[in-house]
Design a protein around this nucleic acid. Structure first.
Length: 924
RNA sequence: GGCCCGGUGGCGGAAUGGUAGACGCAGCGGAUUCAAAAUCCGCCGAUGGCAACAUUGUGCGAGUUCAAGUCUCGCCCGGGCCACCA
């Protein structure tokens, strides 16, 4: 009986589904383990061979944990709201819900074909009202909370209200917007509208006029992480800054905790680094500068208070409100012209030529707080309105950007730190002795920073300050296919719906485009009002809303009363292992942590950090193939000959290319335009072939380099696909997909099969296994078990191959060996293993076989190969007992024939014995 | 510009500081076969040699060590992330 993978795989997939083998329930008698995959967006293109890489790794890990007796939660679902479905709806008129459902069906078929052990009874879809009810619920909670800095956590707005009533704004220490101070009696005098506008400055989910990334091409605003190089990540449309009223989440309140929390996480250094950069903590001071002759003073933020004596001018961001106040009448026209020019320059232009220096003088001067000298106030677009205070002190001698500005406008500079040559470039390093700096002279930079901060503090010129780069998240999208906000407006004041009225379902619209008067698509919905006739919010939530707490919902997916019950949350706690792509480092993984910390603050979840360990699988790139056509002909020349002709390069479908050799008949049949193709072949290894060129590119339809998992499953089976994806290389590394090596892995499965299936029959003997057979098996067990913890599944697959090769050589068909090997192998090739497992007479799934028994039973080899060398040169290997002492090792080596031969007539100067590693003898 | 990761045969890639190139692909030679597929066996970094073997060899240059692909320092190259963040 040959290895019929199709029959076997269908059989076991049916079995798992029928018996609900992977369904889990909370079971306090077993330790829990939670393995999570980043759920996919179900796109119309279906899965390509790169998508399942992480899923396969997590499935292997899950199956191992299950074998070791853990109760493993391993769920899957879909991040189903999003732009592509909506864009498609605009073009075709088909409802996004419909196309999304189709795509989900297709995804499910593909996933099922690979034999994953998901508990599908816990599936979630973010576009399902039963699910997004809880996304809306969380938003209401955020609306009803503010961030209290004394308690260092979120607190209910009701508590804020009583504090304001009692003591006005000074009674509250909160992370909030810019609040003009008011007393308790002021508060009482405020009308409803004024009160709500004030509360908006405190709420964690709030409405604000903010500069947003407006994407006209998509007709919506985008979050910072949805914009790259001034273009939208989805669709590459230009993005510009625009002021709009938007819902925002006060993520910045959590910046310190998001940063500190990273320390306790088992994430890769590079990923932590990315988050650190994104949060962007910088410690410095805020200094107050007074404008000369005007009743204007303003703060600037600097990380280098030590260089204050080198400040020779000030720069304001073009967006700064101060611009108006300090511009003199003589400079007004120049300033206005400059402001107009910068407004026209989109973010994209600014990024395109960072080196371009531009700015304008305001006509006013500041008084230097220490020297009393007058220094000019400029406007420059290299200062950002959104960071710090939107104003800086410029120290051209020690900041390269200030330096470029000063050079361009011919502003003087003063060196205050020794080192470098400021006639050539600025000296930015935080090293050297202070000079030209009055009371700081002679100090080290680090000492000077400290001293200056103290000085500023005692003279009341400013305060020590920590800034974060992390911005509040804009949470409104002017789109259709997203969660509606549970918000209505009464006299222009936002109110939340009652939780009992959730979910607020997405209404039907006639078209998925904005309305004629520029309202979002929900403006087209009939009766988009509350029962009492108040208008509902028309924008929808962004993509990250639904993905921010999905891991909690999996714990208790059918609960209609809560996002997750206390019991379920206490049992599953947090995600032990999270596998997904590094592209979510600054988006999803920041928002999710924020969301979870907030739920933790309000006592809703038991863990502050959601993802204990995180592994990033590498991207699988496409490997494209090319053919070369002689211009103006139907003649195609092989790679090695293309330089002799004037050729054009074309992508060719990688599925009709084998080892870079083109299947010429398939090529003619591929597309009508190529049916008359002629080929000029070249000789490779004595054969005439058409050799294709290749390149590593993104996997995409237009490059004809997409390889579908179904094609591989049809041809080789799911187990081969699983093994091969793991065999390809280290999990975390990016690599191009190349189907070439898959035969080797498939051959290995056939070989293992053939060990026990002879002449149409499954044959094993009950004979006791020999020492040699045990050694072969145990070497494999040891290797695989150590690999599991480091996710080195590529070398595990190699270990299985070696094991099977060795067993084949000694013609082993012992039941004892096969039983253990199969259990060990089952996470990698589950269908294959189930088949053998049942052939061995077992009636239950191998998924719950007792692996601890297997682990205990494996013996460590009793001897070890010691390399023995003389004078530092390797000469031979010796078998020495593993538990031998240093003296015994020395004795065994010196008494061996080989050593005697080598040592004849020589004296031993030194002998180095490193147990389990080496014996090294230096002779004189 | 800053930070992170990597550089090993024709290719993908193995090597707790200890026989570099495991395992697989491709290639070559052989067995089986009327022939092919499938399967099995052997060879497979470079140079020299019929061979045993010798020399050399992990991007470049130094260093630590009895011993370096691995550790340290300085370069070169490639990839990723961030980037006018004061």
């Amino acid at each position: 009986m040959s290895y019929n993978f199709q029959e076997i795989e269908t059989k076991w997939q049916k079995y798992w589904s029928k018996n609900q083998t992977f369904k889990v329930t909370e079971d306090s008698s077993k330790p829990k383990f939670y393995v999570l995959d980043m759920f996919p967006y179900p796109s119309g293109a279906g899965l390509h061979v790169g998508h399942p890489l992480g899923y396969i790794a997590s499935d292997i890990y899950t199956r191992f944990k299950r074998l070791l007796g853990y109760n493993v939660l391993h769920p899957m679902g879909y991040d189903a709201f999003g732009l592509p479905a909506e864009q498609y709806a605009i073009q075709t008129g088909r409802h996004p819900a419909e196309t999304t459902a189709d795509n989900v069906t297709r995804y499910r078929e593909q996933l099922d074909g690979i034999g994953f052990s998901y508990d599908w009874s816990r599936e979630v879809q973010t576009c399902d009202p039963k699910y997004y009810k809880w996304t809306q619920w969380a938003f209401i909670q955020m609306f009803d909370h503010y961030y209290d800095l004394d308690a260092n956590k979120a607190k209910p707005i009701s508590e804020l209200l009583s504090k304001l009533e009692e003591g006005g704004s000074s009674a509250v220490n909160a992370h909030a917007g810019e609040i003009e101070e008011f007393s308790a009696s002021d508060w009482k005098s405020f009308d409803t509208k004024k009160r709500e506008m004030t509360l908006q400055l405190y709420r964690l989910a709030y409405l604000a006029d903010t500069a947003v990334n407006w994407c006209a091409g998509l007709g919506t605003v985008l979050a910072n992480d949805e914009v790259k190089d001034g273009l939208s990540v989805r669709g590459s449309h230009p993005v510009e800054q625009k002021k709009m009223q938007q819902w925002c989440l006060r993520v910045s309140a959590y910046a310190p905790r998001l940063l500190d929390g990273l320390d306790g996480l088992d994430w890769s250094d590079s990923l932590k680094e990315m988050q650190k950069n994104w949060i962007g903590k910088s410690v410095g001071a805020e200094l107050c500068f007074k404008a000369k002759g005007l009743d204007v003073e303003f703060d600037i933020f600097t990380t280098r208070p030590d260089t204050v004596f080198g400040a020779t001018f000030m720069v304001l961001a073009p967006e700064s409100e101060l611009v108006e106040l300090v511009t003199t009448s003589e400079q007004k026209s120049a300033v206005d012209a400059y402001l107009l020019e910068t407004k026209k320059r989109t973010e994209r232009d600014r990024l395109a030529d960072v080196k371009r220096v531009s700015g304008v003088f305001t006509g006013s001067y500041c008084i230097h707080p220490f020297t009393g000298k007058e220094i000019p106030i400029w406007i420059g677009d290299y200062v950002l309105g959104g960071y710090g205070t939107g104003a800086i002190m410029a120290v051209p001698a020690h900041d390269s950007r200030d330096y470029a500005f000063a050079k361009h406008f011919d502003i003087p500079m003063v060196q205050v730190v020794s080192g470098g040559d400021i006639s050539v470039e600025s000296y930015d390093a935080k090293e050297g002795k202070m000079m030209n700096s009055d009371f700081l002279d002679g100090l080290d930079v680090k000492e000077a920073i400290k001293k200056m901060v103290d000085e500023v503090d005692s003279r009341k010129l400013g305060i020590k300050k920590t800034n974060y780069r992390l911005r509040d998240a804009t949470f409104s999208r002017q789109r259709y296919w997203g969660e509606p906000f549970p918000i209505y407006f009464k006299d222009g004041i936002p109110h939340t719906l009652s939780v009992d009225d959730l979910p607020l379902e997405l209404p039907e619209v006639d078209k998925y485009l904005p309305t004629e008067d520029g309202q979002p698509p929900l403006g087209r919905a009939k009766n988009w009002k509350t029962k009492d006739g108040y208008p509902l919010e028309m924008s929808t939530m962004p993509g990250f809303a639904g993905s921010s707490a999905y891991y909690l919902r999996y714990m208790d997916p059918h609960n209609e009363k809560e996002l997750v019950s206390k019991d379920a949350n206490n049992y599953w706690q947090d995600v032990d292992l999270y596998i997904g792509g590094a592209e979510h480092a600054t988006g999803h993984l920041v928002y999710s942590r924020y969301w979870n910390k907030f739920l933790f603050d309000i006592g809703f979840v038991c863990k502050e950090e959601p993802f204990k360990k995180l592994v990033n699988q590498g991207m699988i790139q496409g490997r494209s193939n090319f053919v070369y056509r002689v211009k103006g002909t139907q003649k195609f020349v092989s790679l090695g000959l293309k330089d002799q002709h004037d050729t054009q390069e074309f992508h060719v479908d990688v599925n009709i290319v084998n080892n870079d050799c083109l299947d010429m008949e398939a090529f003619k049949a591929w597309r009508a335009e190529y049916q008359d193709a002629e080929f000029v072949t070249e000789e490779v290894d004595g054969k005439q072939v058409y050799k294709c060129g290749y390149a590593v590119e993104k996997m995409s339809k237009s490059m004809f380099n997409v390889v579908n998992p179904d094609t591989i499953v049809d041809k080789y089976g799911a187990d081969t696909l699983r093994l091969y994806e793991m065999f390809l290389g280290p999990l975390e590394q990016s690599k191009p997909w190349n189907t070439n090596g898959i035969e080797g892995v498939h051959r290995f499965l056939k070989k293992l099969w053939a060990l026990f299936y002879k002449e149409e029959e499954f044959i094993v003997t009950d004979e006791k296994a020999s020492k040699e057979e045990h050694k072969v098996l145990h070497t494999c067990i040891k290797k695989v078990l150590t690999d599991v913890d480091t996710f080195s599944f590529n070398t595990s697959v190699s270990a299985f191959m070696i094991c099977v090769n060795d067993l084949a050589k000694i013609k082993c068909n012992k039941k004892e060996i096969l039983e253990q090997l199969t259990v060990l192998f089952s996470p990698f090739a589950p269908h294959f293993s189930e088949e053998i497992w049942s052939a061995l007479g077992n009636t239950t799934s191998i998924s719950f076989a007792n692996a601890p028994k297997l682990v205990e039973s494996y013996l460590v080899e009793s001897t070890h190969k010691y390399p023995v060398s003389f004078n530092g040169k390797m000469r031979f290997l010796m078998d020495i007992a593993l538990d031998a002492s240093k003296d015994e090792i020395e004795k065994t080596v010196l008494e061996s024939e080989e050593a005697k031969k080598w040592l004849e007539g020589k004296t031993i100067k030194k002998m180095i014995v490193v147990p389990k590693k080496i014996v090294n003898i230096v002779v004189g």
